[in-house]
Design a protein around this nucleic acid. Sequence first.
DNA 1: CGAGCACTTGATCTATGTCAACGGTAGTGG
DNA 2: CCACTACCGTTGACATAGATCAAGTGCTCG
Lengths: 200, 200
Amino acid sequence: MSLISLVDRNNSDKACRSAQRCSVGESLYHAGQEGLAWRVAQGVVRLDMISPGGELSFASLAISGDIIGCETMLFGAYTFSASALTQCELTPWPEGNKDPASESLLQSLASAQKRAAEVVALRGGEAVSRVMGLVRLLASETDQVVLPTRQDIAEITDLRFETISRVIKRLERAQILLPRKLTGIHATRSFDVDFSLAYP
Amino acid sequence: MSLISLVDRNNSDKACRSAQRCSVGESLYHAGQEGLAWRVAQGVVRLDMISPGGELSFASLAISGDIIGCETMLFGAYTFSASALTQCELTPWPEGNKDPASESLLQSLASAQKRAAEVVALRGGEAVSRVMGLVRLLASETDQVVLPTRQDIAEITDLRFETISRVIKRLERAQILLPRKLTGIHATRSFDVDFSLAYP
DNA sequence: CGAGCACTTGATCTATGTCAACGGTAGTGG
DNA sequence: CCACTACCGTTGACATAGATCAAGTGCTCG
């Protein structure tokens, strides 16, 4: 968990009116700021909230199709901070010039509740199954993943990064995760590794 | 976690068109059934989903103001099973005869996301703080709680009931939870105890 | 009375946390 | 170019919170 003051120095936030592509690890917006609501068109977004101690702590995930930041339309400020866990694409919401249709809002509400249940499941049970749960979520439809940092995975699953490191190594040795050093387009950070899932 | 076949034998579900009061522990509806969507007007509801293994596993909480079961309006069946963690009151949703206004849906979406973050927080950190977190959630606005069974608390916080028992006893001895045997109206089960929070 | 359920408590085990050392890869500045 | 710092990741040794197993209490219900 980084201190807010540190996070605030990161000025790479996205805030314009058109569709946005963002790369792994990138910060999208911060709690307390003004801004738009977005639909996650591609990828997985990590949401954090400001804990009583003033640090950012993991709050939830949003994946393809989910709406994030809609609090701004009610309160004029984001409740959560958002960052990209995988490559992702955001489009401003509500879409086009039409009013948010209650049909689509109802769908969003239902899928938000489903998502919540999935995230809750990532924080229960044994370490291996939590990590695999997250990997499956990240890999959904792709079966190729660039994993977030061990620290990110640790905060999402409520484990320690050393544990995550050991778990992932174990999965590699068991040939369940098959690493491939990234050479091409996707590699944004030196330590990025592309994994395929042997048994998705 | 009980098997579905066992749970299905419980026929005490609520399903009529008017406001419903339900007492602690009562089952409200089951995943897969048809039924209405509800607004939780009072109390706290536990939602479970059917895990891969076929058992019911804790999915989320809904508290005063939240909308539950709205999936039925889209899919014709509940995704989750619901049961009352505290005394609670449900009103059919959408309210009255009006269409679900997109304003109120937007609010519901935002508060669902907030709720998700709260539930996630109940599954991280030390045992004591998880339990206290839940107790505070249950006691919000009342500072008097009838706790759910240790087993319920255990499933919500991803701990074991023996651990919950030890934690609660510890909090009692530290005078943070002040037990009072229930005599009156609220006691629905022999083992119910009313707690006040010393430092809410 | 016996069976069932919720709870308590002790003894012991273990998965995960904690601490610490080390390697690889930028990036920065002299 | 090299030294230096800052991350990210791996691995070992050891500590511990919580899990597991087991026994026992009190209450209710038939």
